[in-house]
Design a binder for these strands. Structure first.
Lengths: 319, 319
DNA sequence: TTGTAAGCGTTATCAC
DNA sequence: GTGATAACGCTTACAA
């Protein structure tokens, strides 16, 4: 490939002039400008962007950490991120972690190595201290409500949302409520558990760990939940299900097993994924695409901000 | 941030020695080695990876072009790609195109600019010639059965698969068969259309463009299809649906409308997404994660290869 | 308006 | 074993 030096020679100008033309900085006489463009054409020149990166100390690359993309929750976040990346002339580096700490650390490492200008962590696994250590190397933005880390974030207040949803079910007469969640740990999960315990306490309801189902991510996990519930002596009469995927699985499975919804079991899903509308599932809508867009903007703008997004209960047929 | 030069000074050695230690090339005396490591610790040093990229002419970055990630088809491909990327010490640059040509071209441009070492195009939009123009700049791998482009590929023979599926339905007594597809153009779609027309010809069946439904991607699109079918004078008795998402939407909608499946309408989905199992949908399984893995390997290995993957009909309750 | 030359932080080729 | 020093290809003071 031709370099800027070659162009300079071909066009009979200096490399500076070439650079100026290429980035249209300041004025360059029309004839030299033309000569440069001709040289570009003739040599099928293109910048070596790595040289630019080195010289500028920036890469127009933003890292995105998420456990996996084959789930609407992350896929929709990613959609929003990608949208803003495009509009702002950035590219995304996709870092799939499967919730493994070492991979998240690798992503942080990329920030330190200046391979990416900022890092967006959609679902954090490693300790707060590790994040903090890397803060000096560039903006890190989180998708959780975290006061201890000095980083920007866009998040849902899962404590409040969960608490309100539980109250809603309680008002509808449910005294025995369980919930399904993806993983037990993680900031959002812990907020939800706190809400659950506080709710139970408020109404003097017993805590039963058998009513909490974790590892619930995909449609097929709904089946496991239903099977489990059918074996229970005192099954819950309502379930908060943190993904409509799982909610859809539960509803489908209940239909097969002739468990009436909401009669025998009430369901509130999360995210308002398309399938929830399709299957008439009551759900809590989370503006994931918007959140993705905001996360991206926070990553490039750098100034610290913490944005709580609001969610909306969409009442349909499963409560 | 400290540089290799600083380390050299701190450790009292040359930059060459530092580089050698850092990349453990050849032998370096134990004491100098130690001195370097101490300097690294003391200064919290980390490589500027952009300098490495420039110097080596490689970035350990592979570009991935796909229209969007919020669909199981692409999300699963991506999963496979990410898995191999991790194992081979590469990162993926995620380029979402929404099927827009200019964005695909931008991705090709990154290859020319040496920002990525190779490019994987999961769903091509731009012309074959444009791809070919960029072939000199690095490996490009495709996810389609394309003989004209001299690039590696991993693909499903959609012509054969479609034809066989149509035959299968025909043997079951269906004479009026339609299909649902994501987009009309694109290599895979055209292969499918050819198969459809050839099948029709073989059995002297009439071609009716009203039996082809495009823009079918998500669950909710299934509803549109059903609505449309209910208006038809001569509705199809069977449908090939190129995504289980849409198939699930169709099945759900038919249940609501009391259209019996497979009695009034037979359905064959595609991909064997989890929802297909859940809803007992007959489908054609495509090993998407494996395909993703293979695509990645082709991208880094460079030598030309074209791999056709085999699919499997999974008979369940919708035919 | 244009050019010279010094970075940017590595790796790699030579000598010694 | 070790160290100068020249790439790598671009940007940007600073001069002219």
């Amino acid at each position: 490939m031709a370099t800027i030096k070659d162009l300079a020679k071909m066009a009979g100008v200096s490399v500076t002039t070439v650079s100026r033309v290429l980035n249209n900085h300041s004025y360059v006489s029309e004839e030299k400008r033309k000569a440069v463009f001709e040289a570009v054409k003739a040599s099928n020149y293109d910048k070596n962007i790595n040289a630019v990166h080195l010289s500028k100390g920036k890469t127009q690359l933003i890292g995105v950490v998420l456990p996996f993309a084959d789930h609407p929750y992350f896929a929709l976040l990613l959609k929003g991120l990608a949208k803003q990346a495009l509009e702002n002339n950035y590219k995304l580096v996709f870092i799939q972690t499967d919730y493994r700490k070492e991979r998240e650390i690798e992503a942080l490492h990329m920030l330190k190595q200046k391979q990416i200008d900022a890092l967006i962590i959609c679902s954090r696994t490693c300790e707060a201290e590790v994040i903090e250590e890397h803060l000096p190397f560039g903006p890190i933005v989180l998708c959780e409500n975290n006061k201890e880390i000095e980083a920007s974030s866009t998040y849902v207040n899962h404590y409040n949302v969960f608490f309100d949803a539980l109250e809603y079910l309680y008002q509808k007469g449910h005294k025995r409520i369980g919930y399904c969640i993806a993983r037990k740990f993680g900031a959002n999960s812990r907020d939800r558990e706190r809400a659950y315990r506080d709710f139970l306490k408020k109404y003097h309801l017993p805590y039963d760990s058998g009513c909490i189902f974790d590892q619930c991510l995909h449609v097929e996990d709904g089946e496991k939940v239903v099977n489990h519930i059918m074996e229970m002596d005192e099954p819950p009469s309502a379930l908060l299900v943190t993904s409509d995927q799982v909610a859809a699985g539960i509803v489908t499975c209940c239909q097969k097993r002739h468990i009436s919804i909401p009669g025998d079991l009430a369901i509130i899903g999360f995210n308002n994924e398309p399938i929830a509308k399709m299957m008439n599932i009551t759900t809590i809508e989370i503006p994931l695409v918007d959140m993705g867009e905001n996360l991206f903007l926070q990553a490039v703008n750098d100034d610290l901000s913490n944005k709580e997004v609001s969610v909306q209960l969409i009442e349909r047929g499963t409560v």
